[in-house]
């Protein structure tokens, strides 16, 4: 991933940060007003090496805001949204891709969104697409179960798309109370009457909702099996559209496996 490293390496200094979006923006700020970063990594995953020094960047709301509005005014709203979504990706070098993108953006301005052939823009575009695509995909692939009038579901997305999904369901189910639980990241959306928040969650407190409400689950399974045209069976296509890694949280698939 040469291209994402600094053009001129002054000193080999890595930044480590708390993994939040604001933390990342603080790193960008420090990169411009302090020593330039060789690489930026979340503290939790950082591998200390004897060759590289590292600074721990403390998240600072003001600095983050400065960078935030800087991106908006000097580059574009579109770039800001893109940076935000890419930050939610699980790519190991996402911070460095974002940093290269912002360096380019602060130089070139809003036109970077048309520089499709530039490797950094291309990398951003690609990650952005993956995150956005997974979000859209999951809007369809979550399955709620009802327990005492509350709707529950679990997801295990590749990227941290939980919050991108919130507004959609909050509006759609504005008279419902529901929870979407990200098993992998141990956090959940709690939504009631159209308002939502995301909070860290101990998996223990999530009820075992898979066993509940057989009635509608069975109806759904019957529908799922009957709607397929057997003369056109095409499991390869089914798996390409709906990758197997999502299946374990899908109500309709269970019966097919145990049959």
């Amino acid at each position: 991933m040469e291209i994402f490293k600094l053009e001129t390496v002054v000193a080999m200094v890595d930044y480590i940060y708390d993994g939040t979006f604001e933390g990342l923006l603080t790193c960008v700020h420090t990169n411009y007003y302090g020593e330039r970063a060789n690489g930026i990594y979340p503290e939790a995953d950082y591998q200390v090496s004897i060759l590289t020094e590292f600074y721990k960047i403390v998240t600072d709301e003001e600095k983050a805001h400065a960078v935030y509005s800087g991106i908006r005014t000097k580059i574009s709203e579109e770039a800001l949204e893109r940076v935000y979504r890419v930050h939610l990706s699980s790519h190991k070098e996402k911070e460095n891709i974002i940093l290269s993108y912002l360096r380019l953006g602060f130089k070139k301005g809003g036109c970077i969104s048309s520089m499709h052939a530039h490797p950094v823009v291309l990398a951003m575009q690609d990650l952005d697409r993956k995150v956005s695509f997974e979000k859209v995909r999951l809007l369809g692939l979550v399955r709620f179960s009802e327990i005492n009038g509350v709707l529950f579901c679990s997801i295990e997305p590749d990227h941290d798309v939980l919050e991108l999904m919130a507004d959609h369901f909050a509006d759609r189910y504005k008279n419902e109370a529901f929870t979407i639980f990200d098993k992998r990241r141990k956090k959940a959306i709690f939504c009631h009457a159209g308002k939502w928040y995301i909070a860290a969650v101990d998996p223990e407190i999530i009820p075992d909702f898979e066993k509940e409400e057989r009635f509608y689950q069975d109806l759904w399974k019957v529908y799922f099996e009957n709607i397929a045209i057997k003369e056109r069976t095409n499991p390869r296509c089914q798996k390409r559209c709906m990758p197997v890694r999502y299946w374990k949280n899908l109500t309709e698939i269970g019966i097919m496996e145990t049959k």
């Binding site: 859209v136 959609h168 419902e176 099996e225 709607i227 056109r232 089914q238 899908l250």
Partner: peptide, 21 residues
């Protein structure tokens, strides 16, 4: 009271013939 429509067209599942549900 419940529901919305999205022009992006959300697929909820794919049946064994590969068609979107």
């Amino acid at each position: 009271k419940i529901g919305s429509a999205s022009s992006m067209g959300i697929c909820h599942s794919w049946s064994s013939d590969g068609r979107c549900i």
